[in-house]
């Protein structure tokens, strides 16, 4: 008998066996992996439906072995509402970038959160529009140079970046809101915990769960992957503090209005 080999690292079962289209150093791949591992670990691949955004991650469905819907720009929370309400036995998550969720889809995300839809939203905030080629996002940092803010984001014209986790935390209904980052291994581990917790909440029937993930975009930031990770740590975290913003269980049926 040959000695059994202990496998310590493998491709998640929920991943397809293809190479992604993401740029070198992009953190979408890490975040995808955290979700795929979560689905594997909970054994829910067969009843999970993802909703893809418009943006760099529009092709996310090519990388997951789960059912997927592709939403119009910003509307993923509306699609997720539709399918979850009609088929409540499914586990439904959206994956959205900052242009998708915090700009064109602001209406849909706020109302899905406020209705307490039993879905999980993974919000990837990299402070820039990726797919269209590096334009200013609602989450672009003050002074940050983009193709549509060549002199740096001018807050007198564009206002300050929107802090989505804080904004949604003002609502009473959502069950769980946390901001994490994936710019180093320590934070990746924390991000995984947050994503797992969000899915767990949904599996337990709790209302609306939201994980904001600070992410890098070396290509459009004009930095190397290393520099991008440092830039995130030095610039973004001060404005977008990490941590849990909401972790309550509000359910009108069981506990009434607390």
């Amino acid at each position: 008998m040959p000695e059994a080999k202990l496998k310590i690292f493998e491709r998640p079962k929920s991943f397809t066996d293809v190479v992604t289209h993401y740029c070198p150093g992009c953190t979408h791949g890490i975040i995808h992996r955290l979700i795929a591992e979560t689905i594997d670990e909970y054994g829910i691949r067969g009843k999970t439906v993802g909703v893809a955004p418009v943006g760099c991650s529009v092709l996310i469905y090519n990388y997951f072995r789960t059912d997927f819907l592709e939403a119009p720009h910003g509307r993923a929370p509306a699609l997720a509402t539709g399918i979850k309400r009609v088929s409540p036995e499914l586990i439904v998550f959206t994956y959205q970038g900052d242009g998708d969720l915090a700009s064109i889809g602001m209406g849909e995300i706020v109302h899905a959160a406020n209705r307490g839809e039993k879905i999980t939203v993974v919000f990837v905030n990299n402070a820039i529009y990726g797919m269209t080629g590096g334009q200013m996002a609602p989450t672009t940092m003050p002074g940050q140079v983009t193709t549509t803010s060549p002199m740096g984001r001018d807050v007198s014209q564009a206002g300050y970046p929107i802090r989505m986790s804080e904004l949604l935390s003002t609502l009473r209904t959502p069950a769980y809101i946390e901001r994490v980052s994936v710019h180093n291994p320590h934070n990746v581990i924390r991000a995984k915990k947050a994503i797992k917790k969000a899915f767990k909440n949904q599996m337990e029937g709790k209302r609306f769960t939201f994980v904001e993930v600070l992410s890098t975009c070396p290509t459009n930031w004009g930095l190397t992957p290393d520099e991008a990770q440092n830039w995130l740590e030095d610039n973004m975290i001060a404005f977008y503090p990490l941590g849990v913003f909401k972790d309550t269980y509000y359910d009108n049926d069981e506990e009434g209005q607390k």
Partner: peptide, 16 residues
């Protein structure tokens, strides 16, 4: 919250 959302909720629901 709007007819924009209605249409897209139908999109998601129709997928069922």
């Amino acid at each position: 919250e709007s007819e924009v959302a209605v249409g897209n909720m139908l999109f998601g629901a129709a997928a069922s």
